[in-house]
Amino acid sequence: MNSNTEKKGAVLQILRAFNPPEKDHHVWGDYKLTKVSNDVLIGIVLKHTTKSREDVEQIVKQNNKPYYLAIPKRKNHLSLQNTFINNYENLNETAIEQYEKFLEDDFHYFCTTILGLIPDKGGHSVYNDYDDIENHTDRVVQPNDVLHIGMDFNVTNMSAIVHVHEGDSDYAVAELTGIFDTYSMCEKIKELYSGHSIVIYPDASGQNRKTSGKSDFDIIRQYKYVIRTGVTNPAVRDRVNEVNSAFRERKYFVNRFTCPVYSESLKKQKYKNGEPDKKEGYDHTNDAGGYYITKKGKTIKINSSGARTR
């Protein structure tokens, strides 16, 4: 932001060059915010895609989130807003494909980060499709349930989200948070869920050997739990998109009473510099839940002996 309000005859200019904060942010004090109608939003999106109007209308209808445009309140304010379209001829095909892919994979992210539209309060939430009412379930762990546990490794602060799968839907029914280490986590699972079949969906980094000679995967196998994983974790953006899609399509539900930390983290984790913020501590349970959603049915299994199976 460049300004000179003291020099006689100077023209005050405000140049915006950022991913816009929420509409309640103080930066918008010098602007009048105008809500973008669906018709206007459709027109803006059509300038940034080769999709048909019908496809864009359907995407906008499904999103159902408000956005705003900023208009300077003072006549001597100059406000410039650009998107990748203004630099289209200088971008390679890969970059353009990546930007346009967000339109379908994460429309809200496309609107705010790619188009620069101003989101409503809470609009920069990573899991913006999670609604703790619409995505709530009263489901709890029941006898004979097969438990699918997403697990995130952090020294002194491990997290695990316990799921059950029914029909074509997944239910987060319990959480384990603030666990000291992998041994403690496995002991807690054994204590709480003895008699259940257990499948673990961990952070792929857990297969790396530690200084003690045993990896986190080795420890899990000692407890005879099946591990379902891949050589590497899915890309963060792909994981976030898949979890949001499951929430949006009402195929993923969270018991906010038995998973209070997970539910709050889903609501409060925000983007920072274009990536999910990890400094506030909301990432641990969110990563654990996401590992299950993205790895179920898609990856190799490692049985209790360490052998890989399909």
Rank of each mutant, 00 (worst) to 15 (best):
M1T: 03
S3L: 14
N4V: 14
V11K: 15
L12Q: 11
L15Q: 12
R16P: 05
H26M: 13
W28C: 02
G29S: 13
K35V: 15
N38W: 13
N38S: 11
N38P: 02
I42G: 01
H48I: 07
K51L: 15
E54T: 12
D55T: 08
V56S: 01
E57G: 11
Q58V: 09
Q58M: 13
Q62D: 15
Q62E: 12
N63H: 12
N63M: 10
Y67W: 05
L69D: 11
R74K: 07
K75I: 11
H77R: 05
S79G: 08
S79D: 11
L80D: 13
T83I: 13
T83A: 13
N86C: 13
Y88E: 07
N90T: 11
L91N: 01
L91H: 04
N92Q: 05
A95P: 00
I96V: 14
Q98L: 12
E100Y: 06
E100C: 06
K101Q: 12
K101L: 07
F102A: 15
D106C: 04
Y109Q: 02
C111S: 08
C111W: 04
C111Y: 02
T113L: 03
L117K: 04
P119C: 04
D120F: 08
K121V: 14
G122C: 06
Y127K: 02
N128K: 09
D129Q: 10
D131G: 03
D131Q: 12
I133P: 03
T137E: 01
R139K: 15
P143I: 09
D145R: 00
G150M: 01
M151Y: 06
M151R: 00
N157S: 12
M158V: 00
I161G: 02
V162K: 00
V162H: 04
H165Y: 06
E166T: 14
E166W: 03
E166K: 14
G167W: 03
D168Q: 14
S169N: 15
A174H: 05
T177V: 11
G178C: 09
I179S: 01
T182C: 15
K190L: 09
K190Y: 10
K190S: 15
L192E: 10
Y193V: 02
G195C: 08
S197G: 13
I198D: 01
I198W: 00
I198P: 00
A204I: 09
Q207P: 06
K214S: 08
F217W: 12
I219E: 09
V226E: 03
R228I: 06
T229D: 06
G230C: 03
G230F: 04
T232D: 08
P234R: 06
A235H: 12
A235W: 10
A235C: 07
E242Q: 09
E242M: 14
V243K: 02
N244M: 03
N244C: 07
Y252C: 02
F257D: 11
F257N: 07
C259F: 00
V261M: 07
S263N: 05
S263K: 02
K267R: 14
K268S: 14
Q269N: 05
Q269C: 09
K272M: 12
G274C: 11
K278C: 04
D283I: 03
D283L: 00
N286M: 10
G289E: 01
K295I: 03
K295F: 12
K295M: 14
K296I: 10
K298Q: 09
S305K: 13
R308L: 09
R308Y: 06
T309S: 13
